[in-house]
Amino acid sequence: MKEQMNEQEQTVKSTNYWKMAFLALLATIIGLAVFVGVRLSENREEVYKDKVDQVIFDDKPSFQLVSNKEDINRIINHYLDKYLSTKTVKYDFYLENQAMLNGTFKLLGFPVEFYLYFEPFVMSDGNVLLEAKNVSVGSLSIPMNQVLKQVAKLDLPEWVEVKSKDGQVILHLNQLVIEDDIRIKADKINLVDDEIRLSVYFDVNESASKEE
């Protein structure tokens, strides 16, 4: 009788052992499958994000223009002469070792000439940030932000944004339209070494519609 009970106990223990082994194996397989699935989904997501972050422009530039301050000043002067031809206010903007804005505004009813000096920076979107560094208003002592407030009242192009509180002017080149179908983006501005790089984009669709 005792021998039969011992045999039954051994059979139960053996059965429990195989059940435990089977469950452990099943748990390992499920865990491995979940781990692999998670890893695969993470890799796909990372690749997708990288591709999205790298897309800045929909098309490649038609060509890159490498220029200098003298040539850029000619272009600026030509643009301002054309833009200000119908305006009563006059001002100049040109590049030396710094970018300089020269013009006049009225203070207490009297015209006051000013010189604003900026350090240019290329922004990640290809626009240009002008950081105001110095101001000269004759013998007057006027805070920088007050001068910029007066500059903001000038008849500036729509793509020029004056942020007087921050002492900055932003040139939104992505809003500047040249001959209807040409856009530009700044790549590099180094006034000290006289190196300026711009990417030029042609709107192929716009040109094609005109030809039709």
Rank of each mutant, 00 (worst) to 15 (best):
M5V: 09
M5N: 10
Q8Y: 15
Q10C: 14
Q10I: 03
K13D: 09
S14R: 10
T15F: 14
N16C: 14
N16S: 14
K19E: 05
K19D: 09
M20I: 11
M20D: 11
A21W: 12
A24R: 11
L25S: 11
T28F: 13
T28Y: 07
I29M: 07
I30T: 14
I30P: 09
I30D: 05
L32D: 03
L32G: 15
A33V: 12
A33H: 10
G37Q: 00
S41C: 12
S41N: 08
S41K: 15
E42L: 15
R44K: 13
E46K: 15
E46Q: 15
Y48T: 15
Y48W: 10
K49D: 13
K51H: 13
D53A: 13
Q54M: 09
V55Y: 09
I56A: 14
D58C: 02
D58T: 10
D59R: 13
K60F: 08
K60E: 10
N68W: 14
K69E: 00
I72C: 09
D81G: 11
D81E: 03
K82W: 07
Y83S: 03
S85V: 01
D92H: 11
F93N: 00
Y94T: 07
N97T: 07
N97D: 10
M100A: 11
G103V: 07
F105D: 02
F105A: 02
F105W: 02
K106D: 01
L107M: 04
L107H: 01
L108Q: 05
L108T: 01
G109W: 04
F110W: 06
F110C: 07
P111R: 04
P111S: 01
Y115A: 05
Y115S: 08
Y115D: 08
Y115E: 11
L116P: 01
Y117E: 10
F118S: 04
F118T: 05
E119I: 09
M123C: 06
S124A: 10
D125I: 09
G126R: 03
N127H: 12
E131V: 12
K133D: 06
K133P: 08
V135R: 11
S136W: 06
V137G: 03
G138Y: 01
S139Q: 05
S139E: 03
L140I: 02
I142S: 07
P143L: 04
M144V: 13
M144P: 07
V147M: 04
V147G: 01
V147E: 04
K149Q: 13
Q150M: 01
V151N: 05
V151P: 02
K153L: 05
K153R: 08
L154T: 03
D155Q: 11
P157L: 06
E161C: 07
S164T: 02
K165H: 10
K165G: 09
Q168Y: 08
V169I: 13
I170D: 08
I170H: 09
L171H: 07
H172D: 03
L173D: 02
I182R: 02
K185D: 06
A186R: 06
D187M: 13
I189A: 09
L191W: 12
L191F: 14
V192P: 06
D194G: 08
I196R: 10
L198D: 05
L198K: 12
S199N: 05
F202C: 07
D203F: 02
V204P: 06
V204W: 05
A208I: 13
K210T: 00
E212Q: 04
E212Y: 05
E212D: 04
